[in-house]
Simulated assay, not measured.
Amino acid sequence: MRIFVIHNFYQHAGGEDQVFEQEVRELSKEHDVRVYTSRNVKGVKGLLQYLSYPTNLGEAQRILQQVRAFSPDIVHIHNLHYGIGPWVVRRLRRAGIPVLMTLHNFRLLCPSASLFVGGKIFTASLHEDFPWTAVRQGVLDRSVLKTLLTGFTYWLHRKLGTWNSVNRFMVLSDFAKHLFQSSSFPVAGDRFVVRPNSIDLQPAELRKVGRLLYIGRLAEEKGILPLLDGLVDMDVPLDIYGTGPQLEQVQQRIAKQPQIRYMGYQSREVLTKAIAEADALVVPSVCYEGMPMTIIEAFAQGTPVLASAVGILEEMVVPLYTGMHFNPFEKQSIQNSISQWMALDEAEKKRMGEHCKHEYEEHYTLKKNMELLLSIYEEAIADNRK
Protein backbone atom coordinates (compact mmCIF):
# COMPACT_ATOMS: atom_id res chain seq x y z
CA MET A 1 0.00 0.00 0.00
CA ARG A 2 1.18 3.54 -0.76
CA ILE A 3 0.60 5.79 2.26
CA PHE A 4 1.17 9.54 2.52
CA VAL A 5 1.38 10.80 6.13
CA ILE A 6 0.99 14.45 7.19
CA HIS A 7 2.02 15.84 10.57
CA ASN A 8 2.63 19.26 12.08
CA PHE A 9 5.02 19.38 15.04
CA TYR A 10 4.34 21.74 17.93
CA GLN A 11 7.19 23.86 19.29
CA HIS A 12 7.63 21.33 22.11
CA ALA A 13 7.67 17.58 21.54
CA GLY A 14 4.67 15.59 22.74
CA GLY A 15 2.87 12.27 22.60
CA GLU A 16 1.39 12.94 19.16
CA ASP A 17 4.91 13.11 17.72
CA GLN A 18 5.78 9.73 19.23
CA VAL A 19 2.68 8.10 17.76
CA PHE A 20 3.36 9.63 14.33
CA GLU A 21 6.99 8.48 14.33
CA GLN A 22 6.13 4.98 15.57
CA GLU A 23 3.45 4.48 12.92
CA VAL A 24 5.65 5.72 10.08
CA ARG A 25 8.48 3.46 11.25
CA GLU A 26 6.24 0.39 11.41
CA LEU A 27 4.33 1.07 8.19
CA SER A 28 7.60 1.59 6.31
CA LYS A 29 8.65 -2.00 7.03
CA GLU A 30 6.07 -3.40 4.61
CA HIS A 31 4.57 -0.44 2.73
CA ASP A 32 5.65 2.50 0.60
CA VAL A 33 5.39 5.51 2.91
CA ARG A 34 6.01 9.20 2.22
CA VAL A 35 5.77 11.89 4.90
CA TYR A 36 5.18 15.63 4.88
CA THR A 37 5.92 17.54 8.07
CA SER A 38 5.78 21.12 9.21
CA ARG A 39 6.65 22.75 12.52
CA ASN A 40 5.23 25.67 14.49
CA VAL A 41 7.80 28.43 14.91
CA LYS A 42 8.14 31.57 17.00
CA GLY A 43 8.55 35.23 16.10
CA VAL A 44 7.32 36.93 12.95
CA LYS A 45 7.29 33.69 10.96
CA GLY A 46 5.17 32.11 13.66
CA LEU A 47 2.71 34.99 13.54
CA LEU A 48 2.40 34.66 9.76
CA GLN A 49 1.90 30.91 10.17
CA TYR A 50 -0.91 31.50 12.62
CA LEU A 51 -2.62 34.20 10.55
CA SER A 52 -2.59 31.81 7.58
CA TYR A 53 -4.18 29.06 9.69
CA PRO A 54 -7.79 29.24 8.36
CA THR A 55 -6.86 29.22 4.66
CA ASN A 56 -3.21 28.25 4.26
CA LEU A 57 -3.32 27.97 0.46
CA GLY A 58 0.46 27.84 0.05
CA GLU A 59 0.94 24.88 2.39
CA ALA A 60 -2.03 23.06 0.87
CA GLN A 61 -0.59 23.50 -2.62
CA ARG A 62 2.86 22.24 -1.58
CA ILE A 63 1.33 19.13 -0.02
CA LEU A 64 -0.92 18.48 -3.00
CA GLN A 65 2.03 18.63 -5.39
CA GLN A 66 3.88 16.00 -3.38
CA VAL A 67 0.77 13.86 -3.05
CA ARG A 68 0.17 13.89 -6.79
CA ALA A 69 3.80 12.98 -7.47
CA PHE A 70 3.59 10.07 -5.01
CA SER A 71 0.07 8.91 -6.03
CA PRO A 72 -0.86 7.31 -2.66
CA ASP A 73 -3.72 4.94 -1.92
CA ILE A 74 -4.55 7.03 1.15
CA VAL A 75 -3.48 10.16 3.02
CA HIS A 76 -3.24 9.93 6.83
CA ILE A 77 -3.31 13.23 8.73
CA HIS A 78 -2.11 13.42 12.34
CA ASN A 79 -1.97 17.12 13.20
CA LEU A 80 -2.77 20.31 11.26
CA HIS A 81 -2.48 22.87 14.09
CA TYR A 82 -1.40 25.39 13.12
CA GLY A 83 1.44 25.39 10.60
CA ILE A 84 -0.55 23.44 7.99
CA GLY A 85 -4.22 24.23 8.60
CA PRO A 86 -7.41 22.48 7.42
CA TRP A 87 -7.47 23.82 3.84
CA VAL A 88 -5.35 20.90 2.65
CA VAL A 89 -8.24 18.55 3.45
CA ARG A 90 -10.39 20.33 0.87
CA ARG A 91 -7.68 20.10 -1.79
CA LEU A 92 -7.16 16.39 -1.15
CA ARG A 93 -10.87 15.70 -1.40
CA ARG A 94 -11.13 17.65 -4.64
CA ALA A 95 -8.30 15.49 -5.99
CA GLY A 96 -10.34 12.38 -5.12
CA ILE A 97 -7.85 11.00 -2.59
CA PRO A 98 -9.17 9.13 0.48
CA VAL A 99 -8.30 10.87 3.76
CA LEU A 100 -8.03 9.50 7.31
CA MET A 101 -7.42 11.79 10.28
CA THR A 102 -6.28 10.80 13.76
CA LEU A 103 -7.87 12.96 16.47
CA HIS A 104 -5.24 13.03 19.21
CA ASN A 105 -7.18 15.67 21.17
CA PHE A 106 -10.48 17.57 21.17
CA ARG A 107 -9.41 20.65 19.19
CA LEU A 108 -12.11 20.12 16.54
CA LEU A 109 -14.65 20.49 19.36
CA CYS A 110 -13.08 23.34 21.35
CA PRO A 111 -10.10 25.72 20.96
CA SER A 112 -8.80 24.49 24.32
CA ALA A 113 -8.04 21.09 22.71
CA SER A 114 -8.01 19.52 26.18
CA LEU A 115 -11.50 20.47 27.46
CA PHE A 116 -9.73 21.60 30.63
CA VAL A 117 -9.85 25.27 31.62
CA GLY A 118 -9.25 27.06 34.92
CA GLY A 119 -8.71 23.88 36.89
CA LYS A 120 -11.97 22.30 35.69
CA ILE A 121 -13.30 20.19 32.85
CA PHE A 122 -14.71 22.58 30.25
CA THR A 123 -17.49 21.35 27.96
CA ALA A 124 -19.27 24.58 26.99
CA SER A 125 -18.04 24.35 23.39
CA LEU A 126 -19.45 20.89 22.74
CA HIS A 127 -22.91 22.10 21.81
CA GLU A 128 -22.25 25.65 20.66
CA ASP A 129 -22.31 26.48 16.96
CA PHE A 130 -19.47 28.98 17.50
CA PRO A 131 -17.36 28.61 20.69
CA TRP A 132 -18.17 32.03 22.14
CA THR A 133 -17.86 30.86 25.75
CA ALA A 134 -14.34 29.60 25.06
CA VAL A 135 -13.45 32.88 23.36
CA ARG A 136 -14.69 35.00 26.26
CA GLN A 137 -12.63 32.93 28.68
CA GLY A 138 -9.53 32.88 26.46
CA VAL A 139 -9.19 29.12 26.85
CA LEU A 140 -6.21 28.84 24.47
CA ASP A 141 -3.06 30.14 26.14
CA ARG A 142 -5.23 32.62 28.10
CA SER A 143 -5.58 34.68 24.92
CA VAL A 144 -8.92 35.88 23.61
CA LEU A 145 -7.40 36.61 20.18
CA LYS A 146 -5.75 33.18 19.78
CA THR A 147 -8.89 31.48 20.99
CA LEU A 148 -10.98 33.52 18.56
CA LEU A 149 -8.82 32.74 15.53
CA THR A 150 -8.61 29.04 16.36
CA GLY A 151 -12.34 28.85 17.04
CA PHE A 152 -13.04 30.71 13.79
CA THR A 153 -10.79 28.34 11.82
CA TYR A 154 -12.66 25.23 12.85
CA TRP A 155 -16.07 26.93 12.68
CA LEU A 156 -15.32 28.14 9.13
CA HIS A 157 -14.44 24.64 8.01
CA ARG A 158 -17.57 23.27 9.62
CA LYS A 159 -19.61 25.69 7.51
CA LEU A 160 -17.61 24.88 4.37
CA GLY A 161 -18.14 21.15 4.89
CA THR A 162 -14.42 20.45 5.10
CA TRP A 163 -14.73 17.83 7.81
CA ASN A 164 -17.18 15.83 5.72
CA SER A 165 -14.31 15.43 3.24
CA VAL A 166 -12.54 13.14 5.73
CA ASN A 167 -13.43 9.50 5.07
CA ARG A 168 -12.59 8.29 8.57
CA PHE A 169 -11.78 9.99 11.87
CA MET A 170 -9.72 7.78 14.16
CA VAL A 171 -10.15 8.35 17.91
CA LEU A 172 -8.38 6.68 20.81
CA SER A 173 -11.33 5.45 22.84
CA ASP A 174 -15.07 4.86 23.03
CA PHE A 175 -15.18 7.83 25.40
CA ALA A 176 -13.72 10.16 22.76
CA LYS A 177 -15.99 8.71 20.09
CA HIS A 178 -19.04 9.41 22.27
CA LEU A 179 -17.94 13.01 22.87
CA PHE A 180 -17.67 13.70 19.15
CA GLN A 181 -20.88 11.91 18.24
CA SER A 182 -22.92 13.66 20.95
CA SER A 183 -21.52 17.13 20.18
CA SER A 184 -22.43 19.68 17.51
CA PHE A 185 -19.59 18.43 15.29
CA PRO A 186 -21.32 18.05 11.89
CA VAL A 187 -20.07 14.63 10.78
CA ALA A 188 -22.00 11.35 10.74
CA GLY A 189 -21.24 9.01 13.62
CA ASP A 190 -20.21 6.14 11.35
CA ARG A 191 -17.17 8.13 10.20
CA PHE A 192 -15.56 7.62 13.65
CA VAL A 193 -13.54 4.50 14.44
CA VAL A 194 -11.74 3.60 17.65
CA ARG A 195 -8.08 2.61 17.63
CA PRO A 196 -6.10 2.85 20.89
CA ASN A 197 -2.46 3.77 21.29
CA SER A 198 0.03 0.93 21.54
CA ILE A 199 3.64 0.07 22.36
CA ASP A 200 6.06 -2.71 21.48
CA LEU A 201 7.56 -3.82 24.77
CA GLN A 202 9.12 -6.97 26.15
CA PRO A 203 8.20 -6.99 29.86
CA ALA A 204 11.06 -7.01 32.35
CA GLU A 205 10.74 -9.63 35.06
CA LEU A 206 11.74 -7.44 38.01
CA ARG A 207 10.88 -7.72 41.68
CA LYS A 208 8.21 -5.31 42.91
CA VAL A 209 9.65 -2.85 45.43
CA GLY A 210 6.41 -1.95 47.20
CA ARG A 211 6.32 1.70 46.14
CA LEU A 212 3.68 3.66 44.23
CA LEU A 213 4.74 5.56 41.14
CA TYR A 214 3.74 8.81 39.43
CA ILE A 215 5.11 9.59 35.96
CA GLY A 216 4.03 12.71 34.12
CA ARG A 217 4.04 16.44 33.76
CA LEU A 218 3.87 18.30 37.07
CA ALA A 219 0.94 20.47 36.06
CA GLU A 220 -2.56 21.35 37.26
CA GLU A 221 -4.42 19.13 34.79
CA LYS A 222 -2.43 16.08 35.90
CA GLY A 223 -3.74 16.27 39.48
CA ILE A 224 -0.35 15.86 41.17
CA LEU A 225 -1.04 18.38 43.98
CA PRO A 226 -4.42 16.90 45.03
CA LEU A 227 -2.72 13.50 45.08
CA LEU A 228 0.01 14.78 47.41
CA ASP A 229 -2.58 16.51 49.60
CA GLY A 230 -4.30 13.14 49.93
CA LEU A 231 -1.07 11.39 50.90
CA VAL A 232 0.07 13.95 53.47
CA ASP A 233 -1.60 12.08 56.35
CA MET A 234 -0.62 8.63 55.08
CA ASP A 235 2.66 6.75 55.33
CA VAL A 236 2.63 5.65 51.70
CA PRO A 237 5.86 5.41 49.66
CA LEU A 238 5.65 7.25 46.33
CA ASP A 239 8.23 8.03 43.64
CA ILE A 240 7.58 11.03 41.37
CA TYR A 241 9.13 11.30 37.89
CA GLY A 242 8.73 14.33 35.65
CA THR A 243 8.90 18.09 35.65
CA GLY A 244 6.63 21.02 34.91
CA PRO A 245 5.21 24.30 36.17
CA GLN A 246 4.20 22.89 39.57
CA LEU A 247 7.63 21.47 40.40
CA GLU A 248 8.32 23.99 43.17
CA GLN A 249 4.93 23.32 44.80
CA VAL A 250 5.52 19.58 44.61
CA GLN A 251 8.90 19.93 46.30
CA GLN A 252 7.41 22.10 49.04
CA ARG A 253 4.67 19.56 49.76
CA ILE A 254 7.04 16.61 50.04
CA ALA A 255 9.84 18.41 51.93
CA LYS A 256 8.75 16.84 55.22
CA GLN A 257 7.51 13.57 53.71
CA PRO A 258 10.59 11.28 53.51
CA GLN A 259 8.50 8.41 52.13
CA ILE A 260 7.81 10.49 48.99
CA ARG A 261 10.78 10.92 46.65
CA TYR A 262 11.15 13.30 43.72
CA MET A 263 13.21 11.50 41.08
CA GLY A 264 13.36 14.24 38.42
CA TYR A 265 13.06 13.98 34.65
CA GLN A 266 14.55 10.67 33.54
CA SER A 267 15.24 8.67 30.38
CA ARG A 268 12.79 6.19 28.87
CA GLU A 269 14.96 3.30 30.06
CA VAL A 270 14.83 4.52 33.68
CA LEU A 271 11.06 4.99 33.51
CA THR A 272 10.48 1.54 32.02
CA LYS A 273 12.42 -0.05 34.88
CA ALA A 274 10.55 2.07 37.44
CA ILE A 275 7.18 0.94 36.05
CA ALA A 276 8.23 -2.71 36.13
CA GLU A 277 9.31 -2.45 39.78
CA ALA A 278 6.40 -0.34 41.05
CA ASP A 279 3.66 -1.75 43.23
CA ALA A 280 1.18 0.36 41.25
CA LEU A 281 1.14 3.34 38.90
CA VAL A 282 -0.94 6.32 40.09
CA VAL A 283 -2.64 8.49 37.43
CA PRO A 284 -4.55 11.29 39.24
CA SER A 285 -5.47 13.41 36.19
CA VAL A 286 -8.33 15.87 36.59
CA CYS A 287 -8.69 16.41 32.82
CA TYR A 288 -9.84 14.31 29.87
CA GLU A 289 -6.71 12.44 28.82
CA GLY A 290 -6.20 11.14 25.29
CA MET A 291 -4.77 7.72 26.12
CA PRO A 292 -1.79 7.76 28.52
CA MET A 293 1.09 5.68 27.22
CA THR A 294 2.21 5.16 30.83
CA ILE A 295 -0.93 3.12 31.53
CA ILE A 296 -0.33 0.95 28.47
CA GLU A 297 3.26 0.39 29.56
CA ALA A 298 2.13 -0.42 33.11
CA PHE A 299 -0.28 -3.03 31.73
CA ALA A 300 2.51 -4.53 29.61
CA GLN A 301 4.73 -4.77 32.71
CA GLY A 302 1.97 -6.28 34.86
CA THR A 303 1.73 -3.18 37.06
CA PRO A 304 -1.81 -2.28 38.20
CA VAL A 305 -3.03 1.31 37.93
CA LEU A 306 -4.76 3.53 40.50
CA ALA A 307 -6.50 6.16 38.38
CA SER A 308 -8.99 9.00 38.44
CA ALA A 309 -12.50 8.01 37.43
CA VAL A 310 -12.39 10.70 34.75
CA GLY A 311 -12.90 10.24 31.00
CA ILE A 312 -10.88 7.50 29.35
CA LEU A 313 -9.17 6.55 32.63
CA GLU A 314 -12.48 5.18 33.87
CA GLU A 315 -12.67 3.15 30.64
CA MET A 316 -9.11 1.80 30.65
CA VAL A 317 -8.82 0.80 34.32
CA VAL A 318 -11.26 -1.79 35.69
CA PRO A 319 -11.60 -1.69 39.52
CA LEU A 320 -10.16 -4.74 41.28
CA TYR A 321 -9.26 -6.24 37.88
CA THR A 322 -6.49 -3.98 36.54
CA GLY A 323 -6.43 -1.42 39.36
CA MET A 324 -8.68 1.00 41.23
CA HIS A 325 -10.52 4.28 40.74
CA PHE A 326 -10.83 7.41 42.87
CA ASN A 327 -12.40 10.83 42.62
CA PRO A 328 -9.41 13.17 42.14
CA PHE A 329 -11.41 16.13 43.43
CA GLU A 330 -12.07 14.51 46.83
CA LYS A 331 -9.24 13.93 49.29
CA GLN A 332 -11.16 11.22 51.13
CA SER A 333 -11.73 9.27 47.91
CA ILE A 334 -8.01 9.37 47.10
CA GLN A 335 -7.13 8.16 50.59
CA ASN A 336 -9.76 5.41 50.59
CA SER A 337 -8.61 4.02 47.26
CA ILE A 338 -4.94 4.00 48.21
CA SER A 339 -5.68 2.50 51.64
CA GLN A 340 -7.72 -0.24 49.99
CA TRP A 341 -4.87 -0.96 47.61
CA MET A 342 -2.24 -1.07 50.35
CA ALA A 343 -4.41 -3.49 52.33
CA LEU A 344 -4.54 -6.08 49.53
CA ASP A 345 -2.36 -9.15 49.96
CA GLU A 346 0.44 -9.90 47.51
CA ALA A 347 -1.48 -12.74 45.84
CA GLU A 348 -4.34 -10.40 44.95
CA LYS A 349 -1.97 -7.75 43.60
CA LYS A 350 -0.17 -10.38 41.54
CA ARG A 351 -3.47 -11.62 40.14
CA MET A 352 -4.37 -8.07 39.07
CA GLY A 353 -0.94 -7.73 37.50
CA GLU A 354 -1.65 -10.79 35.35
CA HIS A 355 -4.95 -9.21 34.29
CA CYS A 356 -2.99 -6.12 33.23
CA LYS A 357 -0.74 -8.22 31.01
CA HIS A 358 -3.82 -9.85 29.48
CA GLU A 359 -5.33 -6.43 28.69
CA TYR A 360 -2.09 -5.39 27.02
CA GLU A 361 -1.98 -8.51 24.87
CA GLU A 362 -5.63 -8.15 23.90
CA HIS A 363 -5.76 -4.43 23.11
CA TYR A 364 -2.45 -2.58 23.09
CA THR A 365 0.26 -4.58 21.31
CA LEU A 366 1.86 -2.84 18.35
CA LYS A 367 1.22 -5.82 16.05
CA LYS A 368 -2.54 -5.82 16.61
CA ASN A 369 -2.62 -2.05 16.50
CA MET A 370 -0.98 -1.91 13.07
CA GLU A 371 -3.29 -4.62 11.74
CA LEU A 372 -6.24 -2.53 12.89
CA LEU A 373 -4.78 0.59 11.26
CA LEU A 374 -4.49 -1.16 7.90
CA SER A 375 -8.09 -2.39 8.13
CA ILE A 376 -9.22 1.20 8.81
CA TYR A 377 -7.24 2.36 5.78
CA GLU A 378 -9.14 -0.20 3.70
CA GLU A 379 -12.45 1.10 5.07
CA ALA A 380 -11.55 4.68 4.18
CA ILE A 381 -10.46 3.70 0.67
CA ALA A 382 -13.68 1.74 0.12
CA ASP A 383 -15.74 4.65 1.45
CA ASN A 384 -14.04 6.97 -1.00
CA ARG A 385 -15.16 4.82 -3.92
CA LYS A 386 -18.87 5.23 -3.09
Rank of each mutant, 00 (worst) to 15 (best):
L231R: 06
T153L: 01
F180D: 10
K222W: 09
D174M: 08
D233K: 07
L172D: 02
G230M: 02
A188I: 09
Y214V: 14
F185K: 03
L160W: 11
V171L: 07
R191D: 14
K177I: 07
L218F: 04
V166N: 02
I199H: 09
A219P: 09
I199K: 12
G230E: 05
Y154P: 13
W155V: 02
F169W: 02
L227V: 00
D200G: 13
R191W: 04
R195C: 13
V193Y: 10
T147E: 03
F175T: 03
I224G: 02
P226G: 02
K177R: 08
L149C: 13
A176R: 04
N167E: 13
P196T: 15
F192M: 06
P186W: 02
V194S: 13
L156Y: 10
N167Q: 15
L160F: 11
L201H: 12
F175Q: 00
V171P: 02
A188T: 05
S198H: 15
H178R: 15
L145W: 06
F192L: 03
R158T: 05
S165Q: 14
R142H: 14
L149E: 12
L213V: 07
P186N: 06
A188D: 10
G210H: 08
D200C: 15
L231E: 02
L160T: 08
P226W: 03
S173G: 06
K208C: 07
I199F: 08
N164Q: 09
S143N: 06
G216E: 01
Y214K: 08
L179G: 01
G216L: 05
A204I: 14
S182T: 15
K159A: 06
R142T: 12
S184Q: 07
D229V: 12
E205R: 13
F175G: 04
L225C: 04
G230Q: 07
E221Q: 10
V232H: 10
G230N: 05
G161C: 06
I215A: 00
K208S: 13
G210W: 02
R211K: 14
T162A: 06
I199G: 07
V209T: 13
G161I: 00
I224T: 03
A204N: 14
N167R: 05
G223S: 01
R191E: 13
W163G: 05
